[in-house]
């Protein structure tokens, strides 16, 4: 048996990526647990949880955490309710204007996002949606359309038609076929889309700020105002670490629910 050769190129890439990704994260994490860290010291003079107490003691932080979690859940559920049937229609049914409609869903991502947001904000202002929770829900829905349509369409298209036909053959109605065959077959990939939708909504800042501020403040929006208003690095660092928590949980969940293969397939389309 040959011993595998040492893959120096791979090691070099891994090292470079580790430095680029892990090092900044490490710095932020260190800052979050620092009480005192003054130049030119390489490590903080004093570690501690002083700023955690300070941040978590604030009512607006807890409000925004609740807001963010509620918002992400509501947006993901509504998006699924709208997009999954639409994705199935795009994948399996023939109707006039199918292609144009399909691309119109994606067109929102073809422009600089901020310009689109400002235009929508103008409309929302007339409708009295500015500064409301449902206004933010609406603007976030727009952002989720891309992967909540595109990825499930690919997922539904890759389900073998013969599987659906053989289910009809043994007596299942079209609705039953969708529920018992198509959805479970496309399930892992759709789970990936739901996850992306949740995490994407949770972290989205520009839209949430433009439509929601100052009445509705999500965690990322709050973090920005902290960073803008308080010249204390730790406040931002503590919030950053807080913001990692949902995505970290989401990723753990994803690894459990979804085999790495099907997860990749979701993105590969």
């Amino acid at each position: 048996m040959d011993r595998p050769r040492t893959d120096w190129t791979g090691i070099a890439f891994a090292t470079a990526l580790t430095l680029l990704i892990v090092f900044p994260l490490l710095v932020v994490a260190t800052w979050a647990f620092t009480n005192v860290w003054r130049y030119p010291s390489v490590i903080p003079q004093e570690f501690g949880l002083r700023y955690w107490h300070a941040v978590l003691g604030r009512a607006d932080v807890w409000t925004s955490i609740t807001t963010s979690l509620t918002l992400a859940t509501v947006v993901t559920l509504i998006s699924a309710a709208i997009c999954l049937p639409a994705a199935y229609a795009f994948a399996r049914l023939e109707f006039p204007g199918r292609n144009i409609l399909f691309f119109s869903f994606l067109a929102g991502h073809a422009f600089p996002k901020f310009g689109l947001l400002v235009a929508i904000a103008g409309i929302f202002l007339n409708l009295g949606l500015i500064g409301t929770f449902w206004g933010v829900v609406l603007i976030q829905l727009v952002g989720t359309l891309l992967f909540m349509i595109w990825i499930p369409v690919a997922a539904f298209q890759s389900v073998d038609r013969r599987m659906e036909e053989s289910a009809r053959d043994v007596g299942a109605s079209p609705l039953r076929v969708f529920w018992s065959i198509t959805l479970p077959q496309a399930g892992p990939t759709i789970a990936a889309a739901l996850l992306l939708s949740f995490v994407g909504t949770f972290y989205e800042t520009e839209g949430a700020w433009l439509i929601g501020a100052p009445q509705v403040r999500t965690l990322p929006v709050l973090m920005i105002s902290f960073i803008n208003n308080q010249p204390v690095i730790q406040f931002g660092a503590v919030l950053s670490v807080l913001l990692w928590v949902p995505s970290f949980i989401a990723l753990l969940f994803a690894r459990r629910v979804i085999g790495s293969g099907s997860f990749a397939r979701g993105f590969g389309g």
């Binding site: 073998d160 013969r162 599987m163 036909e165 289910a167 053959d169 007596g171 018992s180 479970p184 077959q185």
Partner: peptide, 27 residues
């Protein structure tokens, strides 16, 4: 098809891969 007294076997077997053999037959 679901109301016809016919049973079809497809070229690509078209088994439901998310079910075991028993559940495929029991469906």
């Amino acid at each position: 098809p679901e109301k016809r007294p016919t049973g079809m076997v497809f070229q690509s077997h078209a088994l439901w891969t998310h079910m075991n053999v028993f559940r495929n037959l029991a469906f």
